[in-house]
Design a protein around this nucleic acid. Structure first.
Lengths: 164, 164
DNA sequence: CCCTGGCTGGGCAGTCTGTCCAGCGAAAAC
DNA sequence: GTTTTCGCTGGACAGACTGCCCAGCCAGGG
């Protein structure tokens, strides 16, 4: 299949171009995308269906900027958890709106979470809310000053499309 | 204006409901959204325009899952940078597709970046590519095991809408 | 050599979008 | 108290898109 059929998983060049196009101009529809990519509309539709079915594209939810919501300060906190209390800590952190994401990482029950706050002063309140919970032994916070590379995926998509 | 007009910035309850709705069902259009929210279509359209203009909603780009692309391993790396080489390091990291985001943080030219890799073994290759660059003094990597709270924004949106 | 699977190009009905408009009600300004 | 301003409503229109269907073509796999 020289036309670009895939082999079980991964994405091909057309998939990559489609994703990149959608990332740059999310408002365009299937029809316009097919024009830009130089393929039939049905092809784009089929590719999109497959990409969603495979889970490559999770969805097209709104990308909300915390700063525009009034939370311009971002920080990362490394947490050290007391053995056995991981589940409680997870539940606690999940209940805090300012915790945007939480990961458990290698290294003795450590967790890493991303926080936002209304100001540097407000960050103190958030941190207190986060760490003021039994089970958290120690917390180290790093405040974000600059964000040279905002969360992105396109370069990886292009690499994945290239490596077929 | 008891109807929900905003006061210069921030979002009101209707904005919050709209964002939440779009987050849950991104495929619905303005018309369907207006039905669900119980307001006129023009209102939804106006709110959406304003939210985009304010930067609250950056866009509706596709949410791509790195794991489905063949990169199921995530890690966070803390980098210590040699004074004065920050710009070079930023450029270098920006050129690595596996670097999904990069932040500079408080604490002596430190940086924090999110990495993905095809496997734990592959992670070694990625890390070598990342830290194999003059200017990076030291690197500490934490591999993500679990992700109890995936990147989210809705709880914060609801809080912001509540606090008006 | 036939079959399978993907892509093409076309068509159709239903629906949504973008964009107007007049009117209304309430807060804000005077 | 009165006027102005602003957001929301409800309706209308043409244009465009979507979801869905189909026959035909082509190349690789069996």
């Amino acid at each position: 299949m020289v036309k670009g059929g895939r082999a079980g998983m991964g994405i091909d060049a057309l998939d990559g171009r489609l994703i990149t196009l959608l990332d740059r101009e999310p408002r365009i529809g299937v029809l316009e995308a097919s024009r830009r990519l130089g393929v039939a509309r049905g092809t784009v539709q089929a590719r999109l269906d497959r990409l969603r079915a495979q889970g490559v594209i999770r969805g097209f939810g709104p990308q909300v900027d915390p700063a525009a919501l009034g939370y311009p300060v971002t920080a990362f906190a490394t947490l050290e958890i007391k053995q056995g209390l991981g589940a409680d800590v997870r539940a606690h952190l999940a209940s805090v709106p300012e915790v945007l994401e939480l990961h458990t990482t290698t290294g003795e029950g450590d967790m890493l979470c991303r926080l936002v706050a209304r100001s540097n002063a407000d960050l103190q309140r958030v941190i207190d809310k986060v760490v003021g919970f039994e089970g958290i032994v120690r917390a180290a916070t790093a405040i974000v000053m600059e964000n040279p590379v905002p969360l992105r995926i396109i370069p990886l998509v292009e690499q994945a499309a290239r490596d077929v």
